[in-house]
Write a protein that binds this DNA or RNA. Structure first.
Lengths: 344, 344
DNA sequence: TAGGGCCTGGACAACGTTGTCACCGGAGGG
DNA sequence: CCCTCCGGTGACAACGTTGTCCAGGCCCTA
């Protein structure tokens, strides 16, 4: 007796199960299941009795058991890089909307830019048997996902491509966007333009650098090594980079900021600078319009939506080859990018 | 034969189970379980054989089954209001960090300010048997959560209190913050101060309004009905409210913005206004410092952290009475709040 | 009125894991 | 030399749900 009690002790705080509901309603277990799932073949009267019992007991179906039985979880996982980065807000929101439209729930977590944590998180999601996975990669080796993908977990990468495996990816045109932004500065008369970007290991960062170099080359302009600074987006590092480029014997007259983190710090640094310096940043931000910052805007929502739709198409059984989708960017001229070069 | 095939057909894409691993390693099922869970009592040699089989087969434990058996999911649910609102980024990030420190995963979703959707989402999370729930309420009736709480789902509300049930809540001092902000404007000479806030149904909105009224009253100032505008945070509505207050016969000389959504629109509206108007906003935002906007800052991260810690304390069995924790706010003077009243 | 089909309801197994308990072989003590 | 004990191992039930299949009752038709 004591044994039995110990056995069923703190099990979900003793929640009622379908069995309990069945007993209370005086029907069979399966009939309760039918009512709960809206399956046909139940008399209105029986259904009413079951509903009543459900109400009284406060029964709620245990989806874990359901998942175990059915094999589908109606859940997709999202591994993003930093929940607090404003760029990812609209992106994950768009994914959530699509998931919701497909009756699925979203589980997410952030990797904090740490590849090990990305892997840990992605695999934890797989252990929860998400139907699909959307990943904003922090690392550059995703072979660890191969068994999962083989086992049927639909996987789509966003913002950055997967590393060392062949998988769907939805990206912004980092190269083209950066090239256009730098060309914009050149068109306004700049010849010495600085580029401050994220760590080159990150795909978007290196693509944007490539865009910068291409624009310069296309205009027949040389690029001094001192004009390019890559590394973490730590404010301290970025501030130093700005200072060095502006204090040089031949200072740059314009700057290109490789992403929103960098841009924020650059704007702050330039605010304290005596000479006007042109600036174009990658990524739009709220309030950037009021500050008159010219940016290359990505459509984060479209990125998320596209990726999610792709994921659900795969979950619906469409099985075409992995593909890379690239979305265009938009240059928003607001003033900071149209400042002419100032005499030194 | 065909029957058997049909039976095991598309089940997680036929993932290997512990049984498969056991067969391959030539050991018993339970031994595999022991290895997977790091339980003691397995010879190094046996363990190696099992690990090898796991590797080869690409086995990953099915947490759904585990949950079903154990009764705990090591998962907490977060119902927030809008993933894309920058205020919630740091908040959910802080919650995630605490959850991670406790070895738990976070599932979240947004209610989009719709009470029905909040309920749907919260109950879906309960069906997935999350151990705990953190809710940023959209609605003001949470009785639907009573069976869940009774069944043992630890529940903490953040940013706004629960409605009609007794539950933990972690809040910012909306009343005190607004009162201080308005008092700040009064101290700088303003007598006619407008308040533009969110819908009064929302607890924070009404508290902030109360703070505004209290500050005015404390200073012996009257409040004209035309100076108070409550409603949605739609830009169009806020713009209209700003215009009306500034175009009145006796226009306000200062504005208090009830939250970050409102503040953004107000700043935009004031940018096009000929006369300088003082402004204090509730909620800090990135770049607000560069625009010189004086704000009442809440510590979103502390809010999230406090709530999450409270949740896990409950999950650890601490069972004190539901409590309301109120965190202080900080006035950040940056210029816009220190503009003196301009002659009309 | 008997027979057949349809509709409602229930018994039972299975999903993949973990807790319980029993078994087996070897070491150590009497 | 036998008995006990213990560490390592495996058989089995149980978690709560759903799919399958069968039973019984009803109505309709011949």
């Amino acid at each position: 007796m004591a044994d039995i009690a110990r056995h069923t002790e703190h099990r979900y705080g003793n929640r009622p199960t379908m069995k309990d509901v069945a007993a209370r309603a005086g029907v069979g277990l399966k009939t309760v299941s039918r009512v709960v799932n809206g399956e046909p073949g139940v008399t209105p009267d029986t259904e009413r009795r079951v509903q009543e019992a459900i109400e009284v007991l406060g029964f709620r179906r245990n989806d874990s058991a359901r998942v175990l039985r059915k094999g589908r979880t109606a859940t997709v996982g999202l591994v993003l890089e930093d929940l607090a980065d404003p760029f990812y807000g609209p992106l994950s929101r768009a994914i959530e909307e699509v998931a919701r439209a497909h009756g699925a729930l979203l589980i997410n977590g952030s990797s904090a830019e740490d590849p090990a944590r990305e892997q840990e998180l992605a695999l934890a999601l797989c252990a929860r048997r998400v139907d699909g996975l959307i990943v904003i990669p922090a690392g550059d080796d995703h072979r660890y996902l191969e068994p999962e993908i083989r086992a049927g977990v639909a996987t789509v990468f966003v913002d950055r491509p997967a590393g060392l495996i062949d998988a769907d990816a939805v990206l912004s045109d980092s190269f083209g966007g950066a090239r256009d932004g730098v060309a914009h500065l050149i068109a306004h008369g700049h010849r010495r333009i600085g580029f401050i970007g994220d760590r080159p290991r990150i795909h978007t960062a290196s693509e944007r650098l490539r865009g910068y170099r291409t624009a310069m080359e296309d205009a027949g302009l040389p690029v001094d090594d001192a004009w390019v600074s890559l590394g973490s987006t730590e404010p301290e590092r970025v501030r130093t980079a700005v200072r060095e480029m502006l204090d040089a014997a031949e200072p740059v007259t314009a700057l290109f900021a490789g992403n929103n983190r960098v841009m924020v710090t650059v704007v702050r640094a330039l605010a304290g600078h005596p000479r006007p310096v042109a600036l174009v940043g990658f990524d739009d931000m709220e309030l950037a319009d009021l500050l008159g910052i010219t940016v290359i805007a990505q459509d984060a929502a479209a990125l998320g939506r596209t990726a999610a739709e792709r994921l659900f198409r795969r979950l619906d059984g469409v099985d075409d080859v992995p593909e890379r989708v690239v979305l265009g960017t938009t240059l928003l001229a607001r003033g900071s990018g149209e400042i002419p070069p100032s005499a030194v």
